[in-house]
Design a protein around this nucleic acid. Structure first.
Lengths: 337, 337
DNA sequence: TTGAAAGCGCTAACAG
DNA sequence: CTGTTAGCGCTTTCAA
C-alpha cells in the first residue's frame, strides 16, 4: 500500500477512524488492547499521518519560519543550527526564507504567512528594514514573532540579542588602551539595530576619553568586496588615517585585511583591528584576529525556545522583553600584544 | 475579518466558492468582469489561500526538504543560498533538516517524509551513511530525490557533484610539481563519496609519479578540533613527516595551520597546503590558502532546478545522471610561489 | 471504551 | 461562463 490512511487501518481492524486516531495519539479513552493492535498495524503498514490534513483540521502546522538576511555568514549559519536543534527536539519543522537584505522581499515573505502556513516566526531583519508595520500587522493577526540579533526595537515582543552596546564600548576601550587614537567604526548599514548599538558603544567609549580629543569616525560600507576594498583603501590613504578599526560586520574583515596588505600597512603595527565575528578561521588569519565573538548558536536556540514556549500555550502572547546573551572579547594578535 | 476564506469572498460577492477559486487561479473559464471583482475583494480582505487545505486537496505541498549534514560550513551555506533562490523563484518553500552527520537522524528524517509533507528532497548524505535503502524505499514510494555533493552512487537518480576525482588529482599533481614528495591526504571520513573520489584522484596522481617511489598516505581525522590537532601534530612530528597536505574538509584547515604554527613548521617553506574549501577568508589566512574552490551555489541551484523540473511534470521520474560542475584550483601562497 | 458524523478550506469533476 | 457536489485525511464533538 502506498500511503496508508487512518481509514485503511480502521477498515483492516474493523474499528472506526476515530478510534484509530485516538489510539495513535495515545488517548486515555482507548483501551490498551486496542491501542496495541492499532500501534502494531500502523508500524507494519508504515503509517504516517498526513500533516496537511491534520494542520487543516487543527489549524496548527507544527512549522515555524526562519527569516534571515542571508546564510553565507558564520553568525547565521550557527544560529540556524541552534534553531534547528531545538525545533527538532520539539517536533517542529523549519522553513527557511532569505531576504537577501531586501525589504521588499522581507515584506513579501511575511505577507505570505498570513495564510497560516506557519505557527510562528523567528526573524532577523534586513538591512533595508526601517519600519515594522509589516511585522506588527502580522502580530496583530495573531502570529507569534520572536526577533533575534537584528531586531525592531519598537515591536512589542521577545527579542534575543547580544550586548551590542557594551561590546562596542568594550572593543573601543580595548583599542584605546592599546594606544589607538583614531579609531574607525566600520559597518555595512547604519540602519540596523545592532550597528546602531555597537556604534553608540563606540561613540561613548571615545567620549569617555574626551580629554584626548578623539573624533568619532563611523563609516558605512556596502555589499560588494570591490566597493568595500575601495572605501577602506581610501580611508587608509586619507590624511586622517585610522590607527584602529572596529569592524562590525563579518564580510568587512577581508577588505580590511586586504587593504592593509596592499598598502603595506602592518596589523597590528600601524593599525589594530577588532572584528565582530564568529569565524572559525579568526585564529589562523594573518595576524590572528581579535574578535567579539557572538553566542550565535545560543541566540538561535534561545529565540526558538521562547517561540515554542508560546506555541505550547493557548494564550500565545509573547512577553515584550529583551534577552541579552553576552558576547565575548577574544584577544588575539590583530590588536598587538 | 481575521482569516477570510474562499467562502467569505463567495458569500459577499454572491457567487460560488468554485467561481472564486477559479477566478483567483486565473482560470480561462471565468469572465474578466468576475475575475476583476474577485481579485479586488480578495486584495481588500487581504485574502491568502490556506496552503494546507490546498495541499490536502491536491496532494502536493509546494514544499521541498533540504537534508544536510550541517550548516556551519561555507559549502553548505552557499548551497542553501542556491537552493533557496531557485525555490523562491519557483514559488516553493524550503524545509531544512540537519543530520549532524548521524545516519540515525538521517533515517528518521527521511522516514517522516513518507507522510507527504514534501514534494521532493535534496540531500547531501551524512558521514555515517553507507547504505541507501532508506532513500531507495522513499523513492520507490514515489518521492523524487536529488543528491548534491555527497551522493549515493548506487541510487538511480540525478546527482550534482563537482569533479572530485579530477580535482584530487589536480591538487596532488600541483603539489608534486611544487616539489612535494610526501603528500598526505586529510579527510574527515573515508566513507563519503567525495572523500573517496578525491582520494582516488590523489592516489592516481601519486601513481603517475611512480618512478619517484611515492607512498600514499591517507589520514582520516575526526570531528573535534582537539582531536584533529593531535592527529595532525603527531603526523608532523613522526618519522615520515609530510611535506604537503591535501585537505579534503574545510574544518581541517584550522588544525593544519595551527599544528604547523605550534611546531614552527613553515607553510609553504616546509609543508605546502591545498584545501577543498569555499572560505572567503582563504585569501587572508597566513599564508593565504591555495584552494580547490567548489561551485557551491551553482551546485545547490542546479540540484534544485532538476528537482523542480521533475515536479512540474506529472511523470515525476528523474533521470539517472551525474551532473558535474567543475571546481577551480585557486593558487595562493600556501603552496609556495 | 467506541462509533457516527460534521467539517477544517480548498479543488475538480460534472452538470448546466 | 458558473454552480453543485463530493471529498482530500484528519480531529472532535456528541451520542451510544
Amino acid at each position: 500500500m502506498a500511503n496508508p490512511t487512518l481509514k485503511d487501518i480502521a477498515t483492516i481492524l474493523g474499528v472506526s477512524t476515530a478510534t484509530v486516531s485516538r489510539a495513535l495519539r495515545d488517548s486515555y479513552e482507548i483501551g490498551p488492547a486496542t491501542k496495541k493492535k492499532v500501534a502494531e498495524l500502523a508500524k507494519q503498514l508504515n503509517y504516517f499521518p498526513n500533516p496537511y490534513a491534520s494542520s487543516l483540521r487543527k489549524g496548527r502546522s507544527k512549522t515555524i519560519a526562519v527569516v534571515l538576511p542571508e546564510v553565507a555568514d558564520s553568525f547565521f549559519s550557527l544560529a540556524i543550527n541552534g534553531i534547528e536543534s531545538v525545533a527538532q527536539h520539539k517536533g517542529y519543522h523549519v522553513l527557511i526564507y532569505l531576504t537577501h537584505e531586501s525589504f521588499e522581499r522581507e515584506e513579501a515573505i511575511l505577507n505570505e504567512f498570513k495564510s497560516g502556513r506557519v505557527d510562528g516566526i523567528l526573524i532577523s531583519v534586513s538591512e533595508e528594514t526601517n519600519t515594522s508595520t509589516h511585522l506588527v500587522k502580522l502580530m496583530e493577526a495573531g502570529m507569534p514573532v520572536v526577533f533575534f540579533d537584528r531586531i525592531c526595537e519598537d515591536v512589542m515582543t521577545a527579542k534575543v540579542v547580544t550586548d551590542d552596546y557594551e561590546s562596542g564600548y568594550k572593543a573601543t576601550v580595548y583599542l584605546l588602551k592599546k594606544g589607538c587614537r583614531n579609531i574607525c567604526f566600520l559597518s555595512t548599514s547604519s540602519n540596523l539595530s545592532i550597528s546602531k548599538n555597537r556604534a553608540e558603544g563606540y561613540a561613548d567609549a571615545l567620549a569617555a576619553f574626551r580629554k584626548k580629543n578623539l573624533i568619532s569616525n563611523v563609516v558605512t560600507c556596502g555589499e560588494s568586496l570591490a566597493y568595500n576594498l575601495k572605501t577602506i583603501t581610501k580611508l587608509l590613504k586619507g590624511k586622517n588615517k585610522p590607527d584602529g578599526f572596529v569592524v562590525s560586520a563579518e564580510k568587512l574583515i577581508p577588505p580590511v585585511y586586504l587593504s592593509c596588505k596592499k598598502l603595506k600597512i602592518s596589523i597590528p603595527g600601524n593599525v589594530k583591528v577588532i572584528g565582530f565575528t564568529n569565524l572559525q578561521t579568526s585564529l589562523i588569519l594573518a595576524p590572528s584576529l581579535t574578535t567579539i565573538t557572538q553566542p550565535a548558536f545560543e541566540m538561535g536556540a534561545h529565540a526558538a525556545a521562547i517561540l515554542f514556549k508560546s506555541l505550547d500555550k493557548k494564550r500565545r502572547q509573547i512577553m515584550n522583553e529583551q534577552i541579552v546573551i553576552k558576547s565575548e572579547l577574544v584577544i588575539r594578535n590583530s590588536t598587538g600584544r
